[in-house]
Amino acid sequence: MGKLDEKVAIITGGAGGIGSGMAKAMAKEGAIVVIVDLNEETGKAMEKELQAISPKSMFMQANLMDRENLPNIIKTVVEKYGKLNVLVNNAHASKQVTIEDITQDDLDLSFNTGFYPTFYLMQAALPYLKETKGNVINFASGAGINGHETQGSYAAAKEAIRGISRVAANEWGRFGINVNIISPIANSPGVQAWAKAQPEYYEAVRSKIPLGRFGDVEEDIGRVAVFLASEDSQYMTGQTFMVDGGSIMLH
């Protein structure tokens, strides 16, 4: 028996990086995982990998910037599986520029791939999460919590996600729905590419992590997502979980 047996979970940005780590961790605990991603090639490859663990899992191609289609993602999953237990809003894209150089397009990219999909998917999922007393897992970032340079558009959207998550936690607690937030540092493909491009900067950042390493997308981030999707976390809501090796210690 897995912690998530037969629970249906949607993970946006699930074809790679942290999303794929969470997808594999949840599938290994018995969940039926629907990964939603724009990239068909990586999505199909991850679908095969997931189906070897959890045969009913699937890939759904979608552009999260297509706001009108967001409710259809939820509807399609519920029509196929009859329920929704877990919604994980992980996808996000942004550009790194200083505040003085941020354009409207930069803000739109960050909010249209991060905040708005998170908000509208939560809204569309609510009726079904009420039925299952389900879980929402959203994503924050140290970029927003600490205010990292050149991350203005990303930080703004991430902190907006934290804000709406806390409101939802207050409003939806009466329905038995918990809404929590993960703020990770992970050894994702993007971080690996950065390590090759700027090894000295990478090493400087790594050396400041108290646990001395970047997190594994499945074993570290994925396992916390499993916890937040399971019965083990049912008395926790509205919390930001710093899964970052101790880099930021919230007061």
Score class of each variant (00 low, 15 high):
1 M>R: 13
7 K>E: 15
13 G>I: 01
14 G>Y: 02
15 A>R: 03
15 A>C: 13
20 S>H: 12
21 G>E: 03
21 G>F: 07
21 G>K: 07
22 M>G: 13
27 A>L: 05
28 K>C: 07
28 K>S: 06
31 A>P: 06
32 I>Y: 01
33 V>I: 10
33 V>K: 00
34 V>S: 05
35 I>W: 01
37 D>L: 02
37 D>C: 05
38 L>Q: 13
39 N>H: 08
39 N>V: 09
41 E>Y: 11
47 E>N: 05
47 E>M: 02
50 L>K: 02
52 A>V: 14
53 I>Y: 12
54 S>L: 08
62 A>N: 06
66 D>N: 07
69 N>G: 12
71 P>S: 08
72 N>F: 14
72 N>M: 13
76 T>W: 14
80 K>G: 12
83 K>W: 06
85 N>E: 10
86 V>M: 04
88 V>P: 14
92 H>C: 13
95 K>P: 01
95 K>I: 13
96 Q>H: 11
97 V>R: 14
102 I>E: 10
104 Q>R: 13
105 D>H: 15
106 D>F: 13
110 S>M: 05
113 T>C: 01
113 T>V: 02
115 F>I: 00
122 M>R: 02
125 A>Y: 04
126 L>Y: 10
127 P>R: 14
130 K>H: 10
130 K>R: 11
131 E>G: 04
132 T>P: 03
134 G>W: 07
134 G>Y: 07
137 I>D: 00
139 F>T: 01
152 G>T: 03
155 A>E: 00
156 A>P: 05
157 A>D: 00
159 E>L: 02
160 A>E: 04
163 G>N: 07
169 A>N: 05
170 N>I: 14
170 N>S: 14
175 F>Y: 10
183 S>H: 02
188 S>W: 01
189 P>A: 08
189 P>D: 12
189 P>G: 14
191 V>G: 15
195 A>F: 15
198 Q>K: 11
198 Q>Y: 11
199 P>M: 07
200 E>R: 15
202 Y>S: 07
210 P>D: 08
213 R>C: 11
217 V>R: 12
225 A>R: 08
225 A>Q: 05
226 V>T: 08
226 V>Y: 03
228 L>I: 08
230 S>L: 03
233 S>T: 06
233 S>M: 05
235 Y>T: 11
238 G>H: 06
239 Q>H: 10
240 T>N: 10
242 M>E: 15
243 V>G: 04
245 G>P: 01
248 I>R: 06
250 L>K: 12
250 L>E: 11
250 L>H: 14
